[in-house]
Design a protein around this nucleic acid. Structure first.
Lengths: 130, 130
DNA sequence: CTGGGGCTTCCCATCGTTGGAAGGTCAAGA
DNA sequence: TCTTGACCTTCCAACGATGGGAAGCCCCAG
């Protein structure tokens, strides 16, 4: 099948498929006589795998590793688990950062009248060391 | 003072200061005879304001508005509060997304032996619709 | 055999930040 | 006064992941 159908079946945009190929996340697709990329059901499966990994927040670099582990039948599950848990830690770190931001901001906003007057604890909070 | 000292005092990188000026987040700095940017204590204060706003996750677009509200003595605190609360909502949305990712991944990882064998529920989870 | 839709490659934009290159300015020391 | 070296200037490019568009080729249906 051509890239358009592979995109429709995998849920990955055709442009993105070409991009993934160019950065080596997926292997280079076979080409038809006219130079069109051709895909198998297996390729579509790989694309859907990549899409789901993106949905879990993995970087393309990590996904590259995940795909190669996935295709390597003699992988050690410990390698996959390590990659996954490292990513969970990154997620938790980001969550903690965003949470701290939200907490601070909610605190400042709570003290702000929010009316027509110019006095604003939010701006004051941003004006001095937090 | 020159940009270097302004950078040291505000905690904002000199390159970043030029960038902020170029995108209009801060007003254009005055220039010395030799074409060097010159900064006042007030400018440093503005830069520190921007830095703290970044630290709370505001986009440069939002910070541009915050800076203009900050400099506008006749602002309405309601405008600031609305901007802040909208941002809190964005933060909460991102947190929820990351949290869902982490939950899914922890769930998959819990089922993975993490030894030398190739069987891996994490890869299997990524292979089929989540 | 022609039209139009799919495909190709290439470049540009986003967002915030950082890096380098090539060159001008300034202040201190010989 | 001249030199040195730190500081400054502008411009160009990159990161990561994605999207948009242009110019041009390929392929199938009518």
């Amino acid at each position: 099948m051509n890239i358009g159908e592979a995109a429709a079946r995998s849920g990955v945009n055709a442009k993105l498929i070409r991009h993934y190929e160019s950065i080596g996340v997926i292997p280079k697709a076979a080409r038809s006589g006219g130079g069109y990329r051709t895909y198998t059901d297996n390729d579509v499966h790989t694309l859907a795998f990549v899409k789901r990994a993106r949905g879990l927040g993995f970087s393309m670099k990590e996904i590259k590793k995940l795909v190669s582990l996935w295709r390597n039948k003699s992988r050690a599950s410990a390698d996959v688990k390590a990659l996954a848990l490292r990513h969970v830690q990154e997620l938790e770190k980001k969550i903690a950062e965003l949470d701290a931001m939200a907490k601070t901001l909610r605190h400042l906003a709570r003290a702000c009248h929010g009316d027509g007057r110019p006095d604003c604890p939010i701006l004051e909070g941003l004006s001095r060391p937090l």
